[in-house]
């Protein structure tokens, strides 16, 4: 028996919009810790990890650990039928091959049930250890989205370099080249407008902009994004979900042969 009641149902809608273009099918795992997902894109160079902690739900009942395979496009279709202010409850029965999404309007005058078929998905679960990163950049998520969009009109890849001068996003294409440098800026009115650069050592890595642009679909989830860079590891682009958890995207860098 599974029953997860999320008062701020719009969060789940936003999560699906953030990941459905990157991943087609995925297993959602439900445990005492929370509702989580780990899945790779079809080419296995990017990975998304989602966690919605159990404490973030108004009601959280998960009698045993369960993994439920879902087609994210179908799930998104169903969640789009929920209003932005609706309370969403996810319900499942042991051994059932379906899951039910219940949408309640804030005034309780409209209640809808959407039943979705589950699917068997054979997926590998990777252990992602805590790591020391060469540099961690925390910046407004809308700014990061803007930079990725702007650069993708010039080139296909972005070089992200962190030095003591700041963080530089560079691209090059047939029509020319572009460089955008952000300096640390903590003297802003609101904390969500700050750019904070922690650098242990300089780092410069190249990534496909197509993936970066896909990650920025998570922008509505958080005003800030954290980009963790290390020359030995995939980049981590993290959007925190207020009081609930996170969506983290991992992307393998492009390496010069």
């Amino acid at each position: 028996m599974l029953e997860l009641r999320l008062v701020q149902g719009s969060l789940l809608k936003k999560v699906l919009e953030a990941i459905k273009d990157l991943v087609t099918d995925a297993n959602f795992d439900c445990s005492a810790t929370g509702f989580s997902l780990q899945a790779m894109d079809s080419s296995h160079v990017a990975l998304v990890a989602l966690l919605l902690r159990s404490e973030g739900f108004e009601h959280y009942r998960c009698d045993r650990n369960i993994s439920m395979g879902m087609n994210l496009n179908n799930m998104s279709k169903m969640l789009k039928c929920a209003g932005n202010d609706d309370i969403i409850t996810i319900k499942g029965d042991d051994g059932s091959d379906t899951i039910t999404f219940m949408f309640e309007s804030p005034t309780q005058d409209k209640i809808a049930d959407f039943e979705m078929k589950l699917m068997d998905i054979d997926s590998e679960h990777l252990g992602i250890p805590e790591a020391e990163y060469h540099a961690i950049v925390r910046m407004p998520s809308a700014e990061f989205s803007r930079i990725c969009k702007d650069l993708s009109s010039i080139g296909d890849t972005v070089v992200i370099s962190v030095t003591k001068e700041g963080v530089k996003f560079s691209t090059r294409g047939d029509i020319g080249a572009a460089n955008i440098v952000l300096r640390q800026n903590t003297t802003v009115d609101k904390p969500e407008e700050a750019t904070i650069i922690e650098m242990n050592e300089p780092v410069s890595l190249t990534f496909a902009l197509r993936y970066m642009n896909s990650f920025t679909k998570a922008t509505p989830l958080s005003s800030m994004v954290t980009i963790s860079l290390s020359s030995e590891l995939p980049v981590v682009v993290e959007y925190k979900i207020a009081e609930m958890g996170y969506v983290r995207f991992y992307l393998a860098p492009k390496i010069e042969e």
């Binding site: 679960h125 990777l126 250890p129």
Partner: peptide
């Protein structure tokens, strides 16, 4: 020419 490794080259299966 750029090489792009897979995520599973960096992280091990549970």
């Amino acid at each position: 020419p750029c090489l792009q490794r897979k995520i599973s080259d960096y992280f091990e299966g549970d």
